[in-house]
Design a protein around this nucleic acid. Structure first.
Lengths: 361, 361
DNA sequence: AAATAATGTGTTCACGTGCACGCATTTTTT
DNA sequence: AAAAAATGCGTGCACGTGAACACATTATTT
């Protein structure tokens, strides 16, 4: 018999009822309001009461009904976002869009406050973060480019009891309740693999942008390491050249690359470890025999991919990161519990001309 | 100045209030209950009232608050799922898991009723679908392997006013409110590209499973076409051989492939267009110089990928399809409106040993 | 010691929707 | 023509949580 039907009404036993705050209150021998105050750490309860309530929650396996919570949420949750500033179409623009979009659709009453610092200046970060501390907030969402400064800032947040989450990249060992990002090193390896899979390269050109030189605040160091390690391991004789370009002087880029090529005419492989392979598109257009791999599905990069200038993009759903991060963080702020899972690594996608359709949502 | 902050409290003007049923009722000059009856097509209202309500809804841009809807949903929505039967770990098992999981977490009171037919027998489909019609349901979720039978069944559903959605594959031009799936032809092309990107193949072995022979109910025909078209276009001299294997007699598979190889010793490329490349894993293990590409991230396939027997898997988040499909369908049943977008195509992922981590969620 | 503040707890309304129920009025049946 | 059914519409409770409020009791200040 191939046909049958089954009911999946309750995951558990026949008439298992999902516990509510009322059940917790009864179990703990207190009122619903008290349970609520314990859960949300709003004070006004004794240590003994807290224990009874928390035990009851654990015993009954209670977790808040998010629909009801969203419906009832009146006071806005203030979430400060301490992130790099951006121009339209840049990486952090996408992160920002995901955040703003989610804030609107998530159903919680979220009040996002953006603190955008200059990615090239640690002073700017410090200025922004101290401004943030003067503002009343319920939680902070931030990334971690300036390690020392981030560590110091996180200590301050810990002291004040303000929960915080890292997005996109992080520093290990701090008190954040959440991290949503990806495996940067793996991404570097993957780019190297894709670049070299059609045959052994004699020489490779790695295009970097000027500010990468600053080792203190270089977000792509780990990714580049992954790239170089892969090449070193699999093609030990291959030489990797580096050329620096200035994104603020785009007119100089193509000449710089051309000049390099005439000095190293055997180069047939080009890569960037930042999100700006599109800056090399004009150069690549003139040299269809050069394989190229870059990162991130910025609109301009995708254009270069579709045109065939770039072979592969290693990327992930950028906006998914921010959406997911904000969702988990908001839920956590709402329930008063840290997210069940602390680290969320998103999958690295490989984009090629043939599978790009449908990637952008 | 690099720091600033902005509020995104309301997407629109300063104090824009999202309209509720009450606003609609006032605008239309009726009571809230009447609005509700119109929205959910539960009868008991005049044609003129309906128009007034619908106009008001459009004018104010009303759409139901899903949190409140989920919270208040008391009567379960009965959704019948008419899908291929499966063994554990097979493709449709994943689809099924996604459905069951979603039904539990979506927050609506969903009552899934599974009608599983034998993929190799159109009679079984007919039997199942008529059984389904004897059961009271609010909506039907189905896929489309047997075209004629599906068309007939859909007519019946249209007549009865039962909304239905296609999942994974569909038939164009029918009255379904929703389709969630992917571009099958594109997937075939992509597999061919990945198989051949490291160099021109002399001969290719396409491994098919026995029941593919039946052209009426062959779900992989289009995918295979994409594969063959790509090869034909880019490598016109390459010969594509086909070997049929029987998944029900796994012990015969490796000998069959070995026999083929000794007859065609130049073959270095192997592909399947179904989800069972793992059946060729033992053979591939013995021939590490053979490139192989398959479809779908079934556990066994991923194992073969990690072991290096398979180079690439073309796939998509299988369970995402069913999760997304059920979510949109349930929301549609709840609001009484068809989903804003009818066709949802998921992105094709390329899986390789280096990016498999984190793919499974 | 009285006034004031802090602490601990319970009560109540609000959020927006689903849906049962009740009551009139009109239409159909007997 | 009376009874029954169908139609059209409004009212009210329930869903589970957030959070203000009210009220005692205890601790602190004046």
């Amino acid at each position: 018999m191939h046909a049958f039907f089954a009911k999946f009404a309750a995951l558990m036993s026949e008439n298992f009822k999902i516990p509510t705050v009322f059940d917790i209150a009864r179990e703990a021998g207190v009122s619903r309001g008290t349970v609520d105050r314990v859960i949300h750490r709003r004070g006004r309860f004794s240590a003994e009461t807290e224990k009874r309530v928390r035990d009851a929650i654990k015993r009954l396996g209670y977790s808040a009904n998010l629909n009801a919570a969203k419906l009832a949420s009146r006071k806005p949750r203030r979430i400060a976002c301490l992130l790099p500033s951006f121009k339209e179409g840049e990486y952090w623009d996408y992160i920002n869009r995901g955040l703003v979009e989610s804030a609107g659709t998530l159903g919680f009453n979220l009040d996002l406050q953006m603190f955008l610092y200059d990615q090239t200046s640690s002073d700017s970060f410090k200025e922004c973060s101290s401004m943030l501390l003067d503002t009343p907030v319920d939680g902070v969402l931030l990334n971690a480019v300036f390690k020392d400064e981030v560590v110091e800032f996180s200590r301050e947040l810990d002291e004040r009891g303000i929960p915080y989450a890292f997005i996109d990249n992080n520093v290990e060992g701090l008190g954040n309740v959440l991290y949503v990002g990806f495996d940067v090193y793996r991404g570097g390896e993957l780019a190297a693999f894709l670049l070299t899979m059609s045959g052994k390269p004699e020489e490779i050109l790695l295009v970097r942008i000027l500010r990468d030189k600053d080792h203190r605040g270089d977000p792509n160091r780990v990714r580049r390491q992954g790239f170089l390690d892969y090449i070193g391991k699999n093609f030990p004789e291959t030489v990797v050249h580096t050329v620096f370009i200035d994104p603020n002087a785009p007119e100089g880029i193509t000449p710089t690359l051309e000049a390099f090529l005439s000095e190293h005419p055997h180069v047939r492989h080009l890569a960037t470890t930042n999100s700006r392979i599109h800056l090399a598109a004009p150069f690549l257009a003139a040299h269809p025999d050069i394989h190229a791999v870059g990162f991130d599905d910025l609109e301009k990069n995708v254009k270069a991919l579709k045109a065939g200038y770039v072979d592969f993009l290693v990327t992930h759903h950028i906006m998914d990161i921010s959406r997911e991060c904000l969702r988990l963080f908001a839920e956590s702020l709402s329930t008063g519990e840290p997210p069940a899972q602390r680290n969320h690594y998103v999958h690295l996608d490989i984009l090629h001309r043939l599978n790009i359709d449908g990637y952008e949502r």
